[in-house]
């Protein structure tokens, strides 16, 4: 692969990357044009609906608040999950006391907490952020606990022998050692958070992305509904890309190390 001309290689990569999606879109177009299924909208119609529906005031009214709640929920679960995870991971008694409880709470399907949150907090923006956090925190919390527990004993002993104070030990030893596991947890949390954002809005809202999509469906605005699904997909991908960028920065040492040991 090295000897070939770079232009050719880029072209081949591009073809591989875009080939199947392009074929899929064309098939979709042909199918929707021929089919008389009234729930299927063609790619052009969806694109048009997308432009009409989401670009403009709806973006500010429905999309931005949803994204803001999503961001708050994710940030909150990272902060709380990592902080609690470090405490529980380093204190054995606390861990053993809370163990069964954590197992149970993690096992509750997060969306069933939406009715509970509605009951306790009413139908508010805070409620939605709390719902997102109450689902997204578990993967982060449990992975942090595992990560902290798995910190290499020699690394900790080294920190002890050099009398590295508590705060620096946390900042330079425990936290980075647990970082790969924490990032695994965050990745899982992202998809949970997105699901809860949508569901909480479908359930209890008169605005927001999830509400809009459900509204379109109930009113048989098919192309608009598809455009909403497309937008959610795009948000999912955006989250994944952002996460990838952050992960590459945070775990550069880890990936470099893995590459070397594999070689």
């Amino acid at each position: 692969m090295t000897a070939r001309r770079p232009a050719l290689r880029i072209a081949a990569n591009l073809l591989f990357a875009l080939g199947l999606p392009a074929v899929a879109v064309v098939l979709w177009g042909v199918w929707s044009a021929r089919s008389d299924n009234r729930f299927l909208a063609g790619p052009l119609a969806v694109l048009d609906a997308f432009r009409r529906t989401w670009i403009g005031p709806a973006f500010v009214d429905d999309v931005l608040p949803s994204l803001l709640r999503l961001a708050l929920g994710i940030a909150g679960s990272i902060v709380l999950g990592v902080a609690a995870g470090i405490a529980i991971g380093s204190l054995r008694r606390l861990r053993e006391t809370l163990g069964p409880l954590l197992e149970f709470f993690r096992a509750i399907p997060p969306p069933v907490l939406i009715p509970v949150a509605m009951l306790l907090l009413g139908i508010t923006g805070t409620m939605k952020v709390v719902v997102i956090m109450s689902g997204a925190i578990w993967p982060i919390l449990l992975n942090t606990i595992d990560g902290v527990r798995a910190t290499d004993s020699v690394m900790l002993e080294t920190a002890d022998s050099y009398r590295i104070p508590r705060w620096e030990r946390l900042r330079f030893v425990v936290l980075p050692a647990a970082a790969p596991r924490i990032m695994t947890g965050v990745r899982q949390a992202l998809s949970v958070a997105l699901i809860l954002m949508v569901i909480s809005e479908m359930f209890a809202s008169s605005s927001g992305l999830g509400y809009r999509i459900a509204y379109f469906q109930r009113n048989y605005l098919i192309a608009e509904m598809w455009s909403g699904i497309l937008l959610l997909g795009l948000i999912g991908i955006l989250l994944a890309v952002l996460f990838g960028l952050v992960e590459r920065r945070v775990l550069r040492w880890y990936q470099g190390m893995k590459e070397i040991t594999r070689a």
Binding site: V154, E157, T158, S161, I164, E168, F172, P176, A177, W253
Partner: peptide, 26 residues
């Protein structure tokens, strides 16, 4: 102390300089 397991006693997320510097920070 210099431990036998250098791979587990040096912190892989710090540079060489960072590793040497860490005990001096406090």
């Amino acid at each position: 102390v210099v431990f036998q397991e250098y791979g587990r006693s040096l912190y892989p997320w710090l540079t060489v300089r960072g590793n040497v510097e860490l005990p001096l920070r406090h």
